[in-house]
């Protein structure tokens, strides 16, 4: 409970080590609230969480890299001095600072005051800070917020590279496309409730939809029922929709089947179901 608003309600899932775990949900769905609770900056009314099967402590947080909601730094200090403070708190040496600054393309501006950074640079500094001490778990809350398209692509590449190094990455996002591009697993939140969680290719199943039309619709349906391979059939009164697993729709064989059965098609179209539509379907 946050004030009078119940921000989270019985959300429960576990995150496989080595995965890139996306927490997906529209604005205000409780993503940041949930991460805030596991980072001990928000106090839940009830519930529990654990890291690596152990109760969460400050010591464990030192070995995780976290960017929560906004880049939080001392405005009057340079990027490098801010990272020195973060490294001291984490109990890591200063040796890593140049390295992480290079990794996010901020090395040249390390001596500039944080207050002079652009939004994208602030975000990069926050990611650099999360990388300090080479942690095995990274928690990134909307990591591409405020970045330009090139920056977004760079950060996504960085996340993939980190994942390839075997790190577990927990990433909150309201950008479905982002989750689909970089995550292996996903949990979808809406108004504080967990809608679904699991591997991305299971949760965000892509479907091919084939629209078929003919003069005699009932006859077409009968003919199509004699065909197999599709997962579902819908009739909207004008056209028939056939659902196939992604990239498996056999247009030619549908056409041939109908023609051989004496039905001439006057409409045959492949439609890709957009992830966006899937997301709306899940969250509405």
């Amino acid at each position: 409970m946050y004030g009078k608003i119940q921000a989270l309600n019985n959300v429960s899932f576990s995150i496989p080590p080595g995965s890139v775990f996306g927490i997906l949900g529209p604005n205000g769905s409780g993503k940041t609230t949930m991460l805030g609770i596991v980072m001990d900056v928000l106090k839940p009314t009830s519930g529990s969480y654990s890291f690596f099967g152990q109760p969460a402590t400050a010591e464990l947080r030192k070995n995780m890299g976290t960017l929560l909601e906004t880049p939080n730094f001392y405005h009057y200090l340079s990027g490098e001095r801010n990272l020195i403070i973060a490294a001291e708190i984490k109990g890591k040496g200063k040796d890593d600072i140049d390295n992480v600054l290079r990794r996010v393309n901020l090395f040249e501006r390390k001596d500039s005051r944080f207050s002079t950074y652009s939004l994208g640079m602030k975000q990069r500094l926050a990611i650099a800070s999360a990388l300090l001490g080479n942690p095995n778990v990274l928690v990134l809350d909307e990591p591409t917020n405020g970045l330009d398209p090139v920056g977004i692509a760079e950060i996504r590449d960085l996340i993939r590279a980190l994942s390839a190094e075997g790190k577990t990455i927990i990433m909150a996002s309201h950008l479905l496309d982002e989750v689909e591009k970089v995550c292996t697993h996903v949990a979808i939140l809406k108004k504080g409730n967990l809608l679904v969680d699991g591997a991305v290719d299971e949760v965000l199943v892509n479907e091919d939809i084939v629209e078929v039309g003919a003069m005699n619709l009932p006859q077409l349906i009968t003919v199509l029922q004699g065909m197999n391979g599709y997962t579902n059939m819908k009739n909207n009164g004008k056209l028939v929709q056939l659902f196939y697993a992604a990239t498996t729709a056999p247009l030619e064989s549908i056409n041939r089947h109908c023609f051989n059965q004496g039905v001439v098609l006057n409409h045959l179209q492949l439609k890709k179901k957009s992830l966006e539509a899937k997301f709306f379907e899940l969250t509405n």
Partner: peptide, 13 residues
């Protein structure tokens, strides 16, 4: 600066 949050997130109790 919200650094009171960040200090905790970074591993201070």
């Amino acid at each position: 600066y919200k650094t009171h949050r960040q200090n905790i997130i970074d591993g201070w109790s």
